[in-house]
């Protein structure tokens, strides 16, 4: 094929991808064929990866590692296992409670520090330091203060959740449109109402971004404390089963944990659409 033909072909593909041109029925058909080819390519890659994983574990690695077939065979039993449900329930309850407390502290704090430069600088050493700090580092301190208990887990989840909320909300509040605030001030709207009716709605997408980060961090915080403090929960379920040659069950739990985190982030985006439909493109 000449290079000019290659260019044409690639261009056609690009246009189909971006949907700018090629609205003809032939274009639509070739797009459908392309979508099918994409799907096949994805499935092939997935199959190859799973096959390699299975082979590598069978041939070279110790047989107490999870394999794809083993994991699939254990999905049903693990989900039906009451001790797993129990552990999952414990973790999820702690994560949700911690997220709620963390947001309840973090979002108002973020709005305030976002609107006041002085307060923001006052809080900066702690907010910046704690936000930069790998959260794991706080686990030893938390266990010294609160013992190897669910209180330590909750404490860490709250910190993990609150900080991204503070940082993001503050940024959003800082960037709230000045013109709107000035108009409100000229119209004699009181300060708290400006905060509530102008700043807060403009800040919402940032808040949502913060909460999304918070979900991931909260899950990691919960698992970390459960690992170190051997507290009942998904984390210790993974750890105990991985050490007790129930590696496939442990892996199922890990996958469910990942799925829960992803679901949490998507759910929060739905929440934003519902709370602030005008922000769809933010």
């Amino acid at each position: 094929m000449s290079s000019a033909a290659k260019v044409l072909e690639r261009d056609g593909g690009r246009q189909a991808r971006f949907g700018r041109f090629g609205r003809s029925s032939a274009g639509r058909e070739s797009r459908r064929a392309k979508a099918l080819a994409n799907l096949v390519a994805k499935l092939v890659v997935l199959a190859v990866l799973l096959g390699v994983w299975q082979l590598v574990v069978k041939l070279w690695l110790p047989d107490y590692l999870p394999t794809p077939t083993g994991v699939v065979s254990k999905i049903g039993p693990t989900l039906a296992d009451p001790s797993f449900a129990d552990a999952l329930g414990d973790s999820v309850r702690a994560i949700l409670l911690g997220l709620a407390i963390g947001c309840a502290i973090g979002i108002p704090f973020g709005v305030i520090t976002g609107r006041s430069d002085w307060l923001r600088r006052f809080a900066a050493p702690y907010v910046g330091g704690l936000y930069a700090l790998p959260l794991l580092v706080l686990v030893p301190t938390a266990t010294i203060w609160l013992g190897y208990s669910s209180a330590a887990r909750l404490f860490l989840i709250v910190i993990a959740a609150a900080l991204p909320c503070v940082v993001n909300t503050a940024r959003g509040a800082q960037l709230a449109p000045k013109s709107l605030i000035e108009v409100a001030q000229i119209l004699g709207v009181s300060k708290p109402r400006v905060l509530l009716d102008v700043v807060l709605p403009a800040t919402l997408p940032f808040v949502v971004g913060g909460v999304q980060v918070a979900v991931g961090r909260a899950v990691i915080a919960a698992v970390s404390v459960e690992f170190i403090a051997s507290l009942k929960g998904v984390g210790s379920f993974i750890l105990v089963n991985a050490q007790a040659f129930h590696q496939n069950e442990a892996f199922v739990a890990l996958l469910i944990l990942a799925a829960l985190g992803a679901f949490g982030r998507v759910a929060i985006e739905w929440l934003l659409r519902w709370l602030a439909p005008w922000q769809r493109n933010a």
Partner: peptide, 26 residues
């Protein structure tokens, strides 16, 4: 890109802390 980009996003969702027991075992 078409065949593996989605995997990157899927794998990213797995908390690495939870993977450490398997790395330790293997």
């Amino acid at each position: 890109r078409d065949s593996t980009e989605w995997l990157v996003y899927a794998l990213q969702a797995v908390p690495v802390v939870g993977v450490t027991p398997f790395i330790l075992a293997g």
